[in-house]
Simulated scan of single mutants.
Amino acid sequence: MAETAREIADELRERIRSGELRPGARLPGEPKLVKDYGVAKETARRALTLLVTEGLAVRRKGSGTYVREFQPIRRVANERLSQERWGGGRSIWSADVGQRPMSVTELRVYEAPAPDDVAQILELDDGAAVIIRDRLFAVEGEPVQAAVSYLPADLVRESAIAQEDTGPGGTYARLAELGAKPVRFVEELRARMPSQDESERLHLAEGTPVVEIYRTALTEDGKPVEVNRMLLDAGVYVMEYRITG
Rank of each mutant, 00 (worst) to 15 (best):
I16F: 03
E7N: 09
V210Q: 02
R75F: 13
A234W: 00
P152V: 05
I161K: 04
V156I: 02
L81A: 12
R6V: 15
F137D: 07
R22L: 11
R229F: 04
V238C: 05
E14Y: 02
G127I: 05
G19K: 03
E188T: 15
T105G: 08
G141I: 03
L122C: 05
A205Q: 13
I121V: 15
R59I: 09
S199F: 02
V104N: 09
S195I: 10
L175V: 11
L204E: 01
E142C: 04
P101C: 09
P115D: 07
G235N: 00
V236E: 01
S63Y: 11
D36W: 08
R75L: 14
E240I: 12
T105E: 08
Y150A: 10
R68C: 09
R135I: 02
L218D: 04
V211Q: 06
T105D: 07
E188A: 13
V210A: 06
A205T: 10
D233F: 01
A25E: 09
T166N: 06
W86C: 04
E84C: 14
S18C: 08
R74H: 13
R184W: 09
V52C: 10
A180S: 13
G87S: 05
R13M: 12
G207E: 04
E158D: 14
R215N: 07
V227N: 03
I243P: 00
V118T: 05
R74T: 15
L50W: 01
P182G: 05
T49H: 06
G167Q: 08
E220P: 01
Y37K: 08
L27V: 09
A205E: 13
S159E: 02
L81V: 11
A147N: 10
T53C: 06
Q196D: 14
V186W: 07
I131T: 08
Y66S: 08
A234N: 05
A162R: 07
R15K: 14
